[in-house]
Design a binder for these strands. Structure first.
Lengths: 343, 343
DNA sequence: CGGATTTACTAAAGCGATCTAGTAAACGGT
DNA sequence: ACCGTTTACTAGATCGCTTTAGTAAATCCG
């Protein structure tokens, strides 16, 4: 019982009594075969559970029916893990409708990410590429253009004309919503424990806070590497200063949980002595005590939209404009309240 | 500035003044070229940043250099999300050493998972398949055998001879460790809030608890769908009974956090009134207040081992025996202590 | 020193699809 | 009835690599 050798297009052609070319035409909905013959061929294909070899297809430069997603993930600082899973689920769900699959690759830095992109392109393994985490002065856009590849960027603002189109979450609006909510509660000293400075959304959010100085809000932005250890240290120092903030906003839920604990250890209960909020929601944010106020976003849908934009480019072959993704909403929970000292 | 056409092995051969065959020999460390020529060829390859097209390679070698992982993920109840991410990172890290990539597919149930396996096999898209979450009476093993595919199972015990080999975590030992730890603290009424009954590890862990009846431990196993809502409800009912448990063990960290909160709401502080522990660790388990005692496992390494086992099968072509994965260790934290009424 | 072996290569045949160019038969219009 | 067009196919080149068979030169050995 040796493993039967692969069924090829030639075998199918023989069974149908036609040439391999005809089978190819039938398969790809191309003219050149009569409807009758096409049906016959397709049913033989069906019976034999045959599918064309993707390697051979890729070689002739046909469509690979695959899109690539190389995720630069230094350490394990991808922020919320749930974000990642939901995003992939969203992307997948849209792709699988079109019988396109996702090639996932985890890389350590942007250099490696671009290297992977090059390989994918040069061997025709993917029809399109998904990018995430835009940076100021992002080298990837140019590379994508040089590779003449289709791509989408999941980002914080619409891409400039001619660049890689993006599905974007208006991070300045998101920041506006959360900071204003705290301001409305009466907070005037707000700290923002952010991620790395080179990430676009960090800068956008920080700018919003800075701008609120006009409304009498004194903001304080501290960048971190997303690690809970840094978040704890930062929180400790914030809360031991003389002019300590009455509200602290974290870039993600893990850091918020870390901060919450430090506050409790220092005898500062949330929300009585300090309000805590996060820019990233998760199941756990709603389960712990006190539950954490957060901006909730439909990550699944974000993934779907990105996939849709990419597929349209691949199929229609035209460069589409950027599109705004789902708008995050505020989920107010127990960790925020008016400041104790507020009038 | 139209996109330059691909550099091929023929171009490299021309530059080196040899035939394409010679380049191939040099590249793959095969005899047939002198060391001197080999060096010359390799440095030209280097200079031109050339890499062989994997499509062409796959076509001739019949190897796809890809392994597939179809993840059945009904709803969004994959337990801990961190587990999933770490596992993939581990698998990836091992695969990428061998220039093999991961094809990830999210499916809704086992039937769809098996359908995806069939497609992958029949079109030679993957060289091997990764399976996870073994069930009692798992239909997948037989299917894999019928497809004549290489595979690994990430599971709870060694696979029977001849079946899909597994990398296994001895879940009975894990359960033994955690339950014994609680028993040693003096707990005699222990509840176990488990996952779905059809999952192998649920059954194995429950059996361990049952067996401890001999040592005077009264165990109580409640199965759930992994949702925090169920975990909360179960915890509430456990703690309002007359003979309430002095320790509750959850199958994952999300449920443990949910349970912890319910306990607090009912005025039962952990660990004073009830001890809480989880079979799954996470960053957050160590950050919340009180931090949660959990079994820590090296999920990254588990992924690496699974990938290694699979690659060996693919390359060597032999069926290897199952191997034991990294042993989880107990991480005792604040949520467990001797019961108040003890001794 | 001459025949057998080894070394270092080249030429060319695949691998399994797609796709262009070519052909025979059917059709259509006058 | 004749010529031009359309239809339904086939033949064969092609993609970029691996690999086998073949060959000329260098090396070995008794």
């Amino acid at each position: 019982m040796t493993s039967a050798k692969r069924v090829t297009i030639a075998d199918i052609a023989r069974m149908a009594g036609v040439s391999p070319g005809a089978v190819s035409f039938a398969l790809n909905g191309r003219p050149g075969v009569s409807d009758e013959t096409r049906q016959r061929i397709l049913s033989i294909v069906e019976e034999n559970h045959w599918q064309p070899s993707s390697a051979a297809r890729a070689l002739v430069g046909a469509r690979a029916n695959t899109v690539g997603f190389a995720l630069a993930r230094p350490a394990r600082s991808l922020g919320s893990e749930a974000f990642f899973t939901d995003l992939i689920a969203g992307i997948e769900s849209r792709l699988s409708e079109s019988k396109v699959s996702l090639q996932l690759r985890l890389v350590t830095d942007i250099a490696e990410e671009m290297e992977v992109h090059r390989q994918w392109r040069s061997s025709n393994q993917v029809d399109g590429i998904i990018l995430i985490d835009p940076r100021d002065d992002d080298p990837r856009s140019d590379r994508i253009a040089a590779l003449d590849a289709r791509a989408v960027l999941i980002g914080s603002k619409p891409s400039p004309e001619g660049a890689v189109p993006s599905v974007w979450i208006a991070d300045d609006e998101v920041a506006e919503t959360l900071f204003s909510y705290l301001a409305a509660l009466g907070h005037t000293r707000i700290a923002y424990v952010a991620g790395p400075a080179e990430l676009e959304h960090t800068r956008l959010r920080a700018e919003v806070l800075d701008r609120m100085a006009a409304d009498g809000i004194s903001g304080d932005v501290i960048t971190t590497d997303f690690s809970p250890a840094r978040a704890s240290a930062v929180t400790r120092s914030l809360l031991s200063g003389r002019l300590r903030p009455t509200a602290i906003v974290y870039d993600n839920d893990v850091m918020a949980v870390a901060g919450l604990r430090v506050a409790q250890e220092m005898g500062r209960a949330a929300p009585r002595d300090v309000s805590i909020a996060s820019f990233d929601d998760s199941v756990i944010a709603g389960l712990i005590n006190p539950s954490i106020t957060a901006m909730t976003r439909d990550t699944f849908e974000l993934g779907e939209q990105a996939a849709t934009l990419l597929l349209q480019q691949i199929v229609a072959g035209i460069n589409l404009p950027s599109a705004q993704g789902p708008t995050p909403t505020l989920t107010a929970r127990e960790s925020t309240a008016p400041p104790a000292a507020a009038s």
